[in-house]
Amino acid sequence: MRRWISFISHLALMVIFASFVSFSTEKEVIKVPAGLRVLEPVEVCFPSETAIVSEETPNPIFLNNSFVGFKEALAFKESQGKYGVVNTLGYLGKYQFGANTLKLMGVYNVEDFMQDPVLQERIFQLNVARNKWILRRDIKRFVGKRINGVTVTESGIVAAAHLAGAGNVKKYLRTYGREDFSDAYGSTIAYYMRKFAGYDVSQISAQRNPKI
């Protein structure tokens, strides 16, 4: 009798074990709805340029070499693209302008400037136009030449002028890089020339003394 009970118990355990193995190894088949099926080859485009991420834009913004790409890349370097930033030296806004530079272009109310993103964008474009005018002869003379191992481009010159002022960029170019400039945070003309080379800034025309 005991042997019979033992046999029945072992048989029950084997049945349970076999059921468990069958259940655990069985693959679940999920059917894809007809509307979501890909039936033909699909071309996938990947970004070829820099991805910029900031707290205000948590999803990456992929930029090409257009003027928009140029200004957003420069803004990210200056302030992470934030309109409300004032740095430790008192430079203002998304593009970190000094108060004196703003006055040159007709902006005298700093508070209004800080609260107006449209004005900040407009001033940036005017400053590019202004620097291109001041450096117009140097742009014509030096674009395509190599200085400190970097091919000089118009966008590199414009970016360097934003950092150091057009006068310091003239010195840098005309001394073939021997007279560089470094700001309080260690950024140099040579670095900006390299970092912001190759963008298309042709949509902004040189303008003498532009004002808002």
Results as ranks from 00 to 15, higher is better:
Lys140His: 07
Gly177Trp: 09
Ala99Gly: 02
Thr188Cys: 10
Glu26Val: 01
Ile123Glu: 15
Gly106His: 07
Leu163Tyr: 14
Gly198Phe: 07
Arg130Ser: 14
Ala184Tyr: 13
Ile212Lys: 06
Ile189Lys: 06
Gly84Asn: 14
Ala129Asn: 09
Arg178Ser: 10
Thr50Lys: 15
Ser9Phe: 11
Thr57Phe: 11
Val85Met: 12
Phe142Met: 01
Arg2His: 10
Asn64Ser: 13
His162Met: 15
Ser182Phe: 09
Ser54Gly: 15
Ile61Gly: 00
Ser19Arg: 00
Gln96Asp: 05
Phe23Trp: 13
Gly149Asp: 13
Gln80Glu: 03
Phe62Tyr: 15
Tyr95His: 09
Ala197Gly: 15
Asn100His: 04
Gln120Arg: 01
His10Asp: 02
Gly156Ala: 08
Lys195Pro: 01
Pro33Ala: 11
Pro33Lys: 05
Val29Ile: 14
Gly93Ser: 11
Phe142Gln: 03
Thr25Ser: 03
Glu72Tyr: 11
Ser54Gln: 02
Ile30Asp: 01
Gly98Ile: 10
Gly98Asp: 15
Ile134Ser: 10
Asp200Gly: 06
Gln203Cys: 12
Leu104Val: 08
Val107Glu: 09
Arg137His: 11
Gly90Thr: 08
Leu89Pro: 00
Gly198Ser: 05
Leu119Cys: 06
Lys195Glu: 15
Ile123Thr: 06
Arg3Glu: 06
Val21Pro: 00
Tyr108Phe: 11
Tyr185Ile: 13
Asn59Glu: 15
Lys140Asp: 13
Thr175Glu: 06
Ser6Pro: 00
Val110Cys: 00
Ala34Arg: 12
